[in-house]
Amino acid sequence: MHNIWTIARREYNLYFSSPVAYVIAFVILLVLGIFFYLNLQVASAQPGYTPGAEITMVPLGTMLVLIVPAITTRLLAEERRMGTIELLLTAPVKDWELVVGKWLGGFLFLLTIIAITLIYPLILNQFVKPGIDQGPLLSGYLGLVLLSASLIAVGVFISSLFSNQIAAFVFTSGMLIFLWWILSPIVQVTGPLGGNSELLTYLDFSGHFFDNLTRGIIDLKDVVFYLSITVLALFFGSVSVEIRRWG
C-alpha cells in the first residue's frame, strides 16, 4: 500500500504542476456552466420543466470519455519514452503496485475535478423549489465515480502498451468512444439476432450509466460491471508491464 500511495501521490501532484489539471478543469467547468445556464433559461421559459442534477451529470459522463485519454496516456507511455520506467522497474515495487499506483493517481485527480462540478447541483438546489431530487444526485455521482475508475483503468492499460504518447492517446480515445457510443448502435442495428447482442449490451459503458445510475437507481449489476472492468483492466496492465520486461 505504501508503494501504491507513493506513486499515486506523485502522479496526482504532477497534474497540478503542469497545465493539464487547469486546462481540464477549465474546459469541463466551462462546458458544464454553459449547459447549466441554458437549462436555467429553458426552465424559466417553460413552467412545466424542473431541471435536476442530470443537467450536469449527463454531459459530464460524456466529457469524461473525451477527457480521460488526456489524463491516462501520460501515465506509463511517458515513463517508457523518457526511460524513467527503468527507475520504477528497478525499485522494490511490484509491477501491479506500479500499475495500481498510476491508476490511483489519475483516478484521484479525476475525482477532484468531479467534486468541483458538484457546485452546479448545489447552486441549482437553491433555485428549484423544494430543492432538487437527492436520489439521482447521489446515484449519478456514484455512477461518475465508478465510470471514472473504469475509464482510467482502461486508459492505464492502453498506456502500458505504448511508448509513443500520441499513439496511446489516439488508441485510448478510439477505445473509449467505441465502448461509450458505438456499442449500443451496433446492438440496435444487428438486433437481438446478432448473436452477441447480450454481451455487447452488457459491455456498453453508457447503458449502465444512463439507464440506471443517472435516474436514481443503484443496481448492483451496474456497480459490479464498472468494478470488474476496472480490476480486469488493471490486471491486464500489470501483465503488460511484466511482459514488456522480457524484451
Binding site: L14, S17, S18, M82, G83, T84, I85, E86, L87
Partner: peptide, 9 residues
C-alpha cells in the same frame, strides 16, 4: 542507467 532517468517537472 545510461540515460539518467529523471522527471524534468
Amino acid at each position: 542507467p545510461e540515460t539518467v532517468p529523471l522527471y524534468p517537472d
